[in-house]
Design a protein around this nucleic acid. Sequence first.
DNA 1: AAAGTATTCAATAAGATACTTGATTACTTT
DNA 2: AAAGTAATCAAGTATCTTATTGAATACTTT
Lengths: 221, 221
Amino acid sequence: MATVHRRYKDATFEIFARIAKALASPKRLELLDLLAQAPKTVENLAEATGLTLANASQHLQAMKAAHVVASSKEGLYVRYRLADPKVIEVYLSLHSLAETLDAEIKEVTDKYLKGREEMEPIASGELRKRLKAGSAILIDVRPEDEYQADHVPGSINFPLHELESRIAELPKGREVIAYCRGPYCVQSVKALEILKAKGIKARRLSAGVHQWKRETAGRQS
Amino acid sequence: MATVHRRYKDATFEIFARIAKALASPKRLELLDLLAQAPKTVENLAEATGLTLANASQHLQAMKAAHVVASSKEGLYVRYRLADPKVIEVYLSLHSLAETLDAEIKEVTDKYLKGREEMEPIASGELRKRLKAGSAILIDVRPEDEYQADHVPGSINFPLHELESRIAELPKGREVIAYCRGPYCVQSVKALEILKAKGIKARRLSAGVHQWKRETAGRQS
DNA sequence: AAAGTATTCAATAAGATACTTGATTACTTT
DNA sequence: AAAGTAATCAAGTATCTTATTGAATACTTT
């Protein structure tokens, strides 16, 4: 009898671990981070993460075996996506845990941002007020497909690589708030550099769409 | 410049992965599951999980290195605890993900419960009503230290191994609802077997304290 | 101080994982 | 049909992980 219980326990924890293992690699987390923004092809993902095609494919297959991602063939391409929005939940709670547990994550970020001009992010409460009042404009500097997939309500898409050439489209006299994939994404930091170089007052929203939705969940407006 | 960004990304995902790896083992998840109930000594944990002392100690140290658990020496014993309540958040969201992704987890549970009499769990909403109305009594069949650490409000502690001998203490004419560590814990199942053998009407609450708190968060009563 | 106990350490063997390279497959375009 | 491209597969090596064993450490009790 005791062994029946042990076997049952082993089986359930084995299943949990299978999923946890799918997440337990820096590269796979990076792939998930990208997939959390929008579905992407293996080629896209390999390029964005700096992995070889074969290696990216193998990581994706490993996650597929754990049912964490799903794929579909579209002509020559295979497009991967998260198997379920709950994957984002786990990913975000892992982020949040890392921030509490690991002082190192703060150090790494500080070190990266050091020397760059005022990068202090704006709080979501303040942002909401200012957007309503019309004193600020929120730009989403991610690629268009990610903006299409989901974005913070009220934001306008200015993909990073188009930002410099489209800078005239920004309304004058309003502060620009830029956001991208999330607190550890570098795109909004780069956007700020471009904007400040042109003398435009700009700040960063450190949250991405998912963090935003998480924070503002159950709140109206 | 591109390499600066790559290095920054690598560093942050490395940190996330370090934490994820600490969770990515069936045995370590089982240890965390126990620690989520109450702090415990290495000896306790080794016995409960069926690991050798040395092996349990090594797993615990691995998690300690990732700052997921903390320990303190108490005389001869070393007592381990979760480093932060947020660890539970991640663990619960992993559970919840596993349930959505993996049909297998349901199969394993069904198979285990098969043949045992009516084990359908009671919903938390219904439970609250019936406790208020006084038509049911909620018993916590976990060991006393876990009950002391935290329990569902209104529950009474009847540790599994004392249940049979203390059965007379149960009020007559009320249905008994038993709960333990969570949906995959076998103690409440065993409790039901004992109670039913004595002809006492009993059901199971599949949630543990943490699931209960999560479900009823932001609700009053 | 000596004996006893809980935990950790160190060394090792077996197993799983990650990345590389060079095919191979599946599909599209010409 | 032939050429081209995205993705996968297969095999090999280097690297981690896990569990085991026996010895060492750190306390407590006698």
